[in-house]
């Protein structure tokens, strides 16, 4: 009975749609995509034989998978497809996509916590990150610190700037001491 129904539905659909279900997640085959950068520094791609002169990337699971499940979209925010794992791409594409992700998801990785001070009603973090030193200012801790699990901490600034502590167990002892007081 069920089989019959399925058959009917398929027959009703036009031939074109039948082979490409619009609700299916379209995974891009690594061999059929290549990413590059224009002279103006804009991220571009050739995907399944079609050239796109501007591409926007989205991490589908920004916390859980930073290099997997990358949604590739055109500037109109239409999804072209999803890259399952960027490690399967060719070398140039991989470097470019990694760079683009790092730029689009501006999330410096904290290498050292210089100090965490509470001044008046603000918490001020002086941080060393892989992208240089910075300062993060929070209004309180319970709304601006996130713990996605696995010893990771996401710190959010009052202005929306974010930094990530990949694994607080891996920090040096000075940093850990600073962090322990506020966790």
């Amino acid at each position: 009975m069920n089989e019959l129904e399925v058959k009917e539905v398929q027959e009703e659909q036009p031939a074109e749609l039948a082979e490409k279900d619009p609700f299916e997640i379209h995974l891009l085959e690594p061999e059929r995509i290549s990413f590059s950068r224009s002279s103006g520094g804009v991220f571009q791609a050739v995907i399944e034989g079609k050239a796109y002169d501007e591409i926007v990337l989205f991490r589908v699971f920004p916390f859980r998978y930073t290099t997997q499940f990358i949604s590739v979209r055109n500037p109109k925010n239409e999804e072209i497809g999803i890259v399952r794992d960027i490690s399967l791409l060719d070398r140039e594409s991989r470097t470019e996509i990694e760079k683009e992700l790092q730029l689009r998801y501006f999330l410096p990785i904290v290498t050292r916590i210089e100090s965490v001070k509470q001044k008046a009603d603000l918490w001020i973090w002086e941080l060393g990150t892989n992208l240089g030193d910075t300062r993060i200012v929070m209004r309180n801790l319970h709304e601006f610190m996130q713990f996605p699990g696995n010893n990771r901490v996401i710190l959010t600034d009052m202005n929306g700037k974010r930094c990530e502590i990949r694994d607080y167990e891996q920090l040096d002892s000075h940093s850990k001491r600073q962090l322990r007081d506020v966790m």
């Binding site: 224009s38 103006g40 520094g41 804009v42 920004p62 501006f106 999330l107 202005n159 974010r162």
Partner: peptide, 24 residues
């Protein structure tokens, strides 16, 4: 982007990235 953004100029030769900045 997330936590930051990019200022892009569209030119006759295609888009050009002018600079990047953090969310602040």
């Amino acid at each position: 982007g997330v936590g930051g953004g990019t200022l892009i100029a569209d030119t006759k030769r295609g888009p050009v990235i002018v600079l990047r900045y953090t969310a602040a």
